[in-house]
């Protein structure tokens, strides 16, 4: 079995161009999902009203259905149905003008927010109740208690799960080719098809993704080690 090493060499640098795209996706989705994930986690932990229940349904759907299905629904099915509808109503919005990247941001955030929300919920509920009581006992207000005592501990507890979630997000971004985004996967696919060197192409991608994710894990392990004593 001989691999086309020339192809590997040439394509590797081409594929590297896709890394910034991947990073952009990961970065944006991370920020969005962390923000909303935390918000939703606080809501669900502290109340049980109708909003909380709606969030519960949302989380269940996002976690129970494959991302591809979500992509097909939002990227493929929705526009097909909305376009004639808009035409009917005279809305001058071209559904097909939305860039693939936007879809990527939206769909991946849709999937990531529940994951982050569960992470924060787990951390929030695992904090010893006694910590808040002790804070109140020495005169801190609830908000101060949260900010100075609870939150820092919650953050440290989330680190391992956060690592898993970020690597999960990186793996998720590999599906961006389905919304016509040319990140690592997209580039390698086309190159592979061009030269029918599929195995080599996917080997490159695999190596890149694995290296990326392992790098992230290493960074997290280092951070965790440093921070461990504080919680």
């Amino acid at each position: 079995m001989s691999l086309n090493t020339e192809f590997i060499y040439n394509t590797f640098f081409l594929v590297l161009k896709g890394v910034p795209v991947t990073m952009k996706i990961v970065g944006v989705v991370l920020l969005i999902s962390l923000f909303f994930g935390f918000l939703f986690a606080v809501v669900r932990t502290n109340s049980n009203g109708i909003f909380s229940k709606i969030l519960g349904v949302y989380v269940s759907f996002a976690r129970g259905t494959p991302v591809m299905v979500q992509i097909y629904l939002i990227y493929t099915a929705l526009p097909t149905v909305l376009a004639p509808y808009f035409k009917e109503k005279g809305i001058a919005f071209d559904v097909y003008s939305i860039k693939g990247m936007t879809y990527a941001y939206f769909i991946f955030s849709f999937g990531m927010i529940p994951v982050m929300s569960e992470m924060f919920r787990g951390a929030l509920s695992s904090i010893d109740k006694g910590q808040l009581e002790a804070a109140k006992a020495i005169g801190l207000s609830v908000i101060q208690g949260y900010r100075r005592i609870i939150l820092p501990q919650a953050l440290v507890k989330t680190l391992p799960v956060l690592c898993t979630n970020i690597t999960g997000l990186v793996k998720l971004s590999s599906l961006a080719f389905a919304v016509s985004v040319f990140e690592i996967m997209g580039i390698a696919k086309t190159e592979g098809a061009k030269y029918t060197c599929y195995v080599e192409a996917y080997l490159i991608i695999a190596v890149l993704y694995v290296a990326l994710n392992l790098g992230i894990e290493v960074i997290f392990k280092l951070v965790e080690k440093r921070i461990k004593i504080y919680a």
């Binding site: 590999s174 599906l175 599929y198 993704y209 694995v210 990326l212």
Partner: peptide
Amino acid sequence: TAIFRSVPPVVLLFLVYYG
């Protein structure tokens, strides 16, 4: 475990399919 927890499933699928 390091490799197979870091690789995106779709990439692995194609690698397996062609490889």
